[in-house]
Computed example of a mutant assay.
Amino acid sequence: MKVTDRQKKKFLKSLRQARIEAGLSQSDVARKIGTSQSFISKIESGRISLEVEIFLKLYQLYDKPAVYFFSAFSRK
Rank of each mutant, 00 (worst) to 15 (best):
L24R: 05
Q60L: 07
I43D: 03
R75L: 15
K57V: 04
K76P: 05
I54P: 00
L12Y: 01
A72E: 01
R6H: 04
I54T: 15
E44P: 05
A22G: 04
S27D: 14
V3E: 06
K42C: 09
Q7M: 05
R19N: 10
K2Q: 12
M1G: 15
Q60A: 08
I40L: 01
R19H: 08
R47Q: 14
L50P: 10
S14Y: 01
F69K: 03
R19L: 10
Y68D: 06
L58I: 04
F73P: 02
K8F: 01
I20M: 13
S14D: 04
V67P: 00
S27W: 01
Q17K: 14
K2M: 11
S41M: 04
R16C: 07
I43P: 02
L15K: 05
A18R: 02
E44I: 06
D63K: 14
R6M: 06
T35Q: 05
R47H: 13
R6E: 13
L12R: 01
M1Y: 08
R19V: 07
R6A: 12
R31C: 03
Q37C: 04
K42M: 14
L61W: 04
V29L: 08
Y62M: 12
S25P: 05
Q26I: 05
Q17M: 11
S74C: 05
Q7I: 06
S14K: 10
Y68M: 03
L15V: 12
S74D: 11
K8C: 01
L50K: 11
G34V: 10
K2C: 01
K64T: 01
I40R: 06
L56E: 13
K76W: 06
A18Q: 05
R47I: 03
S49H: 09
D63H: 12
K8P: 00
E53D: 15
D28T: 09
L12V: 04
E51R: 15
Q7R: 02
V29T: 13
K13A: 14
E53N: 15
A66I: 12
S38F: 05
S71V: 10
T4E: 02
K32R: 15
F39V: 03
K64Y: 01
L58Q: 02
V3P: 00
F73D: 04
K8N: 06
G23A: 06
V52C: 12
E44N: 11
D28F: 07
A30R: 12
L58D: 07
Q37F: 01
A18D: 08
F70A: 11
K13T: 07
S27K: 15
E53A: 15
E21Q: 15
R16S: 13
T35D: 07
A30T: 09
A72M: 00
I54M: 12
E53C: 09
I54V: 14
A72W: 02
I33N: 03
I33S: 07
S38N: 13
M1R: 11
E51D: 13
I40Y: 03
Y62H: 05
S71C: 09
D63S: 10
F73Q: 07
G46H: 01
K42L: 14
K64W: 06
Q17H: 06
F73E: 03
S38K: 11
G34K: 09
Q7P: 03
